[in-house]
Simulated scan of single mutants.
Amino acid sequence: MWPFFRPVQWLASCLRGYHMPGKAFPQQRGDTSLVLVDEARRFIQDCLMRVGVPAAKVRCISEFLVVADYRGNFGHGLNRLDVYLDDLQRGHAKVDAEPTILSETLATAHVSGNSALGVLVGNFCMDLAVQKAEGAGIGFVVAKESHHFGMASWYAFRAALQGLAGLVMSNAAPTMMAPHTKSASIGANCLAFCVRGRDYHFVLDMAASVRDIGAVEWAWANDEYIPHGWAANEAGFSTIFPNLALRSPLLYPAGGHKGYCLSAMIDLLCGVLSGAQYASHIPLDPRQPSNLGQVFIALDPEFFVPNFMERLDDFCGRIQDSKPAEESQPIRLPGELERMHMNYVEDLRALPYPNTLLTKYRDVASKLCVKPIELAFHRCQSKKSF
């Protein structure tokens, strides 16, 4: 691991143990430039400090954005910075706010995020859940008055690093259609789960939709089409054009009715149970505060079986050893594609960003009077096989 990855080295070590297939990378459409990790971090921190975020909070916000891009979850990385800046400038997210515990027991807690940025609420809640799990075997923390908290697996990793299993859920503004409808009534709510063995790690991070809105935004930034079945246009018909899909977000649920029911369950736990907004009560208009609800669970596996890590390794190995339908399509465990992208970034020694995204942040830099992102290389054609 090179020196500029040290702040996220814990994340890489958390995911070691996969057996990666070696394949050539076909070309990805759209011109891409490379940005050194330190430079991406510097730009994010400069922007945050310009809108008044205290230095003590700037680092944890910039790290979780950089890690998202490092893992290839570009919809929740630098791409989201302008949304967080807008929330802070509008006062929807409060710079000086801190989460507080409303009530708690030995194993549970109800938290108010007090309109702090989602990553600050998420870090607080998962750390609290871990603390409770270390004493009671499980920690179950529910939060309200939170905001979009980015890559959900970021918080599940915090539990995994302590030898626990982490489960995280969040609701979101209504962007997903129920089957056989043409309007959105519920969010493409997310779920992440992480637990580690000795040789394998199981890392799930998913939305209840076929793909989340960040993936559609990223396709638009890369000047790419999206596959049919990801999203619909304003009339409710499937579209391949991300700009049409973004006008009035209408995402398709993963697995039809099953994805819709999963999203409803997440919203019930995160929104209804917490006292936060839920379903169509959550405003889609970014000019209004969101009041999202989230759930953070930490579980001590050894409370149930002392040899859990060995059993997890056996479980993952048996899945990976199953015979693929095509030799060119090996069996991959949840989280393995992200680990492949981490290897890819390490080979590049920089993060690949589409020039359209970098152009947007040149404008942001000008408005905030901060130094623009300095590129490592220009017009690099990014190549990926996943």
Rank of each mutant, 00 (worst) to 15 (best):
M151W: 03
A152N: 07
A152P: 02
S153F: 04
S153K: 09
W154A: 10
W154C: 09
Y155D: 09
A156Y: 13
A156E: 07
A156F: 11
A156S: 15
F157P: 01
R158W: 07
R158S: 06
R158Y: 10
R158Q: 15
A159G: 09
A159Y: 08
A159D: 03
A159I: 02
A160R: 09
A160Y: 06
A160T: 09
A160I: 02
L161W: 06
Q162E: 13
L164M: 14
L164Q: 07
L164Y: 08
A165F: 11
A165L: 15
G166V: 00
L167M: 13
L167V: 13
V168R: 00
V168H: 02
V168L: 07
M169E: 01
N171G: 08
N171E: 03
N171W: 01
N171H: 07
A173R: 13
A173Y: 10
A173P: 08
A173F: 03
P174C: 05
P174Y: 07
P174H: 10
P174T: 04
T175M: 12
T175G: 02
T175V: 14
M177I: 05
M177P: 01
M177R: 12
M177S: 01
A178N: 07
A178C: 08
P179E: 10
P179S: 10
H180L: 12
T181R: 14
T181S: 15
K182E: 07
K182I: 08
K182G: 06
K182D: 09
S183G: 08
A184D: 03
A184C: 12
A184W: 07
S185E: 14
A188R: 01
A188G: 13
C190N: 09
C190M: 11
C190A: 15
L191E: 01
C194N: 14
V195Y: 07
R196T: 03
G197F: 05
G197E: 10
G197H: 07
G197V: 01
R198V: 01
D199H: 14
D199R: 12
D199Y: 05
Y200S: 12
Y200L: 06
F202C: 13
F202M: 15
V203S: 13
V203Q: 11
L204P: 09
D205Y: 05
D205N: 12
D205W: 05
D205R: 04
M206N: 02
A207T: 13
A208Q: 02
S209P: 04
V210Y: 08
V210K: 03
R211S: 07
D212R: 00
D212A: 14
I213Q: 02
G214S: 05
G214V: 05
A215G: 01
A215R: 01
A215M: 06
A215W: 00
A215L: 00
V216G: 02
V216T: 04
E217N: 06
E217L: 04
E217K: 05
W218D: 11
W218Y: 11
A219I: 00
A219R: 02
A219W: 00
